[in-house]
Design a protein around this nucleic acid. Structure first.
Length: 115
DNA sequence: CCCTTGACTATCT
DNA sequence: GAGATAGCCAAGG
């Protein structure tokens, strides 16, 4: 463990990549999964420093709002990517299809209709 | 070494 | 439910 860790810890990237399509996770959530409970803010930096493209758009704030100012370029981009995966955005808040808790990846891939 | 920033969060008003 | 406050922690000037 040298200068690694924190913003360069692959665990962060892995956690982000592990988010199933159609679902989202918060920064704090990712941080905790990766083993850094209090480093929610570092997650964003870690994602920027990722050598490989990440599904960064699936990472939102704990209150389900996007982390960018509404109307900004990044905001629109994230919103579009999310909608492309079936996530609605209402009143600036994202509405995941389901918690990955009671929705299997199979259902996501098969496109099982909700309800 | 001190101060500011930031793709954050929980809590209180 | 929206705005203000305090806690949080690494990076950069």
């Amino acid at each position: 463990m040298s200068d690694f860790q924190r913003t360069f810890d692959p665990a962060i990237w892995e956690a982000v990549r592990n988010i199933p399509a159609g679902n989202v996770k918060s920064y704090g959530n990712i941080a905790r999964i990766a083993g850094y409970p209090k480093h929610s803010r570092m997650v964003s930096k870690a994602m920027c420093r990722s050598p490989k493209p990440l599904p960064w758009h699936r990472v939102v704030r704990s209150d389900l709002t996007l982390a960018f100012p509404e109307g900004s370029d990044a905001y629109e981009k994230q919103a579009q990517l999310l909608e492309m995966e079936g996530v609605e955005i209402i009143h600036g808040k994202v509405k995941p299809l389901r918690s990955d808790n009671d929705m299997s990846l199979d259902e996501l891939l098969w496109g099982t209709p909700p309800e």
